[in-house]
């Protein structure tokens, strides 16, 4: 057990290091902007005094290294700064209370997590079941049909799937709402209903890969002698797969599930825009369009963190579930 703990600690440390480097990359990328933020916020017609004031507020007169540590410190305290849209509003309209980036992101973040959760709750069991069935009836019409269907859905752009679902489930047969109008204090059932269509779209996107991997992992094992033994004992094919093959195939499957949940993070951006779902992806795209740097920076950091954490989880789970990795020679 000691060695497992050590390996996991090593991976965690590596993950933290990656996060740190990623934050440097994001910060550097943003600092490659021409000119500076102050002019970008206030626009062309700003008075020099206003520009100087904002520059002082944002600490733009300090050197980049100091600013990076300032920013990083802020991020660690949960202070992601104030968005340009808000600063601009304050500078031009004289508003007193400012919404910080963190307070704007927080509700959106929980919405996105809800969407990802619903998607995972549908996609994981469905793809596992389909993968087991495809392995059980391999090379049958069902297997080939599932192969073509998943290959098609994996290679379609998310918005194509989204609009096809909208067309059939919202416009032609009004079963589900085509716009995910979600607000705070909404009942769970209603919220689920409005999340279902984007969740179904994302399910179509991620199911294919998970299913193919499940099938491949199981089939790879079917040639091994102990499966042959189980077959010769006269166990039914279903039981051979579920009891004997599946536990050994679990490591790659769990790995692929975690990787696909990480993929959800990119998929979520486009899908949220299509369904006007009030999540963090929508916020990110809006910020990109108006070049709201602090917001873009914060969203990017959150997406990258989630991505790294899920990859890390995949890594750790595959170590824990595989004795050969647990005791490296």
């Amino acid at each position: 057990m000691g060695s497992v703990g050590k390996i996991i600690l090593q991976r965690l440390a590596l993950g933290l290091l990656t996060l740190l480097v990623v934050s440097i990359v994001i910060f550097t990328a943003v600092n490659m902007l021409p000119g500076d933020f102050a002019e970008a916020i206030l626009g062309q017609g700003a008075t020099p005094e206003a520009v100087a004031a904002i520059r002082r507020d944002l600490g733009l007169d300090q050197n980049p290294v100091m600013r990076y540590f300032d920013w990083l410190g802020g991020v660690l305290r949960g202070d992601l700064g104030t968005s340009f849209a808000q600063l601009n509003f304050q500078a031009n309209m004289g508003a007193t209370s400012l919404q910080t980036v963190a307070s704007q992101i927080a509700p959106r973040f929980s919405n996105t997590m809800f969407l990802a959760g619903v998607t995972a709750a549908i996609a994981v069991p469905v793809s596992l079941a389909l993968g087991i069935l495809a392995a059980l009836y391999r090379n049958s019409a069902f297997d080939k049909g599932a192969n073509i269907f998943t290959l098609s859905s994996i290679s379609s752009p998310e918005f194509f799937l989204a609009y096809v679902l909208i067309l059939f489930l919202a416009v032609l047969n009004p079963i589900l709402p085509s716009l995910s109008n979600i607000y705070e204090g909404m009942g769970f059932a209603e919220r689920l209903e409005r999340t279902l269509l984007p969740a179904l779209t994302l399910t179509l996107v991620v199911t294919a890969h998970m299913m193919r991997m499940t099938r491949a992992a199981i089939i790879q094992l079917l040639a091994s002698p102990y499966i042959e033994m189980a077959r010769l004992k006269g166990i039914s094919p279903m039981r051979v797969i579920v009891r004997h093959a599946l536990p050994n195939a679990l490591a790659p499957i769990v790995n692929v599930i975690a990787l696909n949940l990480a993929y959800l993070i990119t998929g979520v951006v486009v899908v949220e825009v299509v369904f006007v779902y009030p999540g963090i992806g929508q916020l990110f795209v809006d910020a990109v369009k108006i070049r709201d740097i602090p917001m873009v920076q914060a969203c990017c950091l959150i997406f990258a963190t989630a991505y790294i954490l899920l990859n890390l989880t995949a890594d750790i789970l595959s170590i824990v579930s595989n004795p050969r990795l647990r005791h490296p020679k």
Binding site: V25, A29, G35, A262, C300
Partner: peptide, 25 residues
Amino acid sequence: DVLMAIPSLIFALLLMTIASVWANQ
């Protein structure tokens, strides 16, 4: 390794934000 640690669409969106300012200038 570092570049691959950031999801590609997200990274592309971040860089496009910056590029759009450069493209203007």
